[in-house]
Amino acid sequence: MSVDSMFVHKMWVDHELSKMVDGGVPFPMLSDGGGKVGEVYGVYDPAGGVDVRGRFIIDPDGVVQAMEMLTPPVGRNVAETLRQIAAFQLVRESKGSRATPSGWRPGKKVLTPGEDLVGNVWQEWKVEDAFN
């Protein structure tokens, strides 16, 4: 979603994005004229008249589970977004009985929060796990 019109979105797809992705963009490209939606989401920059790089992960109940905001010159890490979605889906499927510690990726160890874990995370999780 950007403040550009849907017609400019079409031009962008036709002239550039379709050269990167076969068949063009596989999801709706939304138009936020005047930044009204961006303002509610806290990403509209009135000085520049644009929505900054904000990213929100919204769960099936419509609840915001994660958000990230960047100023324009720095791009996002899409792999990190996918990792977060996988983590939130795992937690949701476990009905909140599991938690993914720092550095978690699909396949890595998850934690089971509870009385036994209090004061014992050091046995279950090592500092290296944050980086490997």
Partner: peptide, 30 residues
């Protein structure tokens, strides 16, 4: 919001996606 999706101009509402995971991305410009 008005949108461009697979060659067509359309309109979407966020709540239509209840039941699915949604990534909502804002960016400074096309």
């Amino acid at each position: 919001a008005p949108c461009y999706f697979q060659g067509k101009f359309a309109s979407v509402q966020l709540s239509e996606y209840l039941g699915k995971w949604v990534v909502l991305c804002f960016y400074p410009g096309d």
